[in-house]
Structures are given as structure tokens and as C-alpha cells.
Amino acid sequence: MNTQPAHRLRARLVAQQRASAAARYAAAVDMRGEIENLTREAEEQIREGVWEVGAADRVLAGKTASELTAVIHPPDVQQKMAPIDRLEHLREALAALAIALARVHGPMAWFLAAASTALTPVLHWRALPADGGRAFGAIEPTAAQYADAEQAVRRIRDTLARITTA
């Protein structure tokens, strides 16, 4: 039997949600750095012959790079967009990576999975106000976080485009 008053339980729950949101915020801060390390490793593996890119990988890389280009525009265009549209485009980029991941195995799958994982903080973002602060732990990202995530997607796109000629 729980002896704590309901208001204390609610306060503790709210504190836990805020701590969880703060952790997601911290994780989102260096998305671009994580992607930079990942893409550098992929390019190094290709250059050293560790990852032998096959024809199917090249085709998938090209298709996915095109899909990312369609949803993430140059920085000056993205910055003029409403937050809800920026978030929609980032979610579409994640969806494109997930669909590509479902169609491949081996190093390309590992690369796409790691790229998707690095972008997962986007899944905890919201662009709309939350009634009563209840948003399942979703946070409103800053303009810098949007820019960081969008630049990370551009870096992934650029690496996929280079894979098409590997």
C-alpha cells in the first residue's frame, strides 16, 4: 500500500520526466559531432578496403542521398521554416534512413543504423506547446539544435553520395 500523498507522487513523476528530458537535450547537443565521427569511420573503412561497397550498396546510397536532399534543404532555407516544418523534415529524414536500413545488410546496414541512432533525439522533440506541460517527455528544441540535426543529415547525405562512387 502506497502511503505517499498523490501530490508527492505526481511531483516525483514530473521531476523524473524533467530529468529524462534534460538527458535527451544533452544527447541532442552533439548530434553533428557523433555523425562526423561515424561518417569519417565509414569513409576510412571504404578507403582502406575494409568495407567493399557493392553495386546494391551504391544504388541504395544514391537513392537515400536523394531522399535526404529532398527533405533537408540548405541552411538558409531551413532556418526560415516554421519549427513544425523543420521537425517534420527531420522526421522524414529519419524515416528515409529507416527504410533504407530495412533493405540492406552488412556494413551499409551498420552505417545506416548508427546514423539513425545518432539522430534519435529528434524523436523526442516537439514543435507544439504542451497543455499542462504533459508531452510524454518531449522537449522543444532550440534553433541551434535544429541546425545541428539538419547539418548532421547533410553530412550523412554527403557520405552516401560519395559511397555511390566508391
Rank of each mutant, 00 (worst) to 15 (best):
V50S: 10
P121Y: 00
E43V: 06
V77A: 11
R8D: 14
M108K: 08
A143D: 10
H89Q: 15
P107F: 11
V53K: 07
P83A: 11
A143N: 13
P129M: 01
P129V: 00
V71L: 07
E41M: 13
A42W: 14
R134T: 01
L97Q: 02
W51G: 03
V77Y: 07
Q4L: 15
S116C: 13
E140Q: 09
V77N: 08
E48T: 14
A161C: 04
L160P: 14
D158V: 10
I163M: 06
R32Q: 15
T117I: 04
G54P: 02
T117A: 10
D76T: 15
A113S: 15
A6I: 14
P75A: 13
G62A: 06
V29Q: 06
R103F: 12
A147T: 11
G49K: 01
T142Y: 02
Y25E: 14
H7S: 09
E67A: 09
A21M: 01
V71I: 05
W125I: 01
Q78A: 07
D131Q: 08
E92I: 03
T64H: 09
T69K: 05
T164K: 04
L112N: 12
A113V: 06
A135G: 14
A82R: 05
L60K: 10
N2R: 09
D57R: 02
A152Q: 09
S20Y: 07
R103H: 13
S116Q: 11
Q4I: 02
E150V: 12
A22Q: 13
R10G: 00
I99R: 08
E44M: 11
A166W: 13
R155Q: 14
I156N: 07
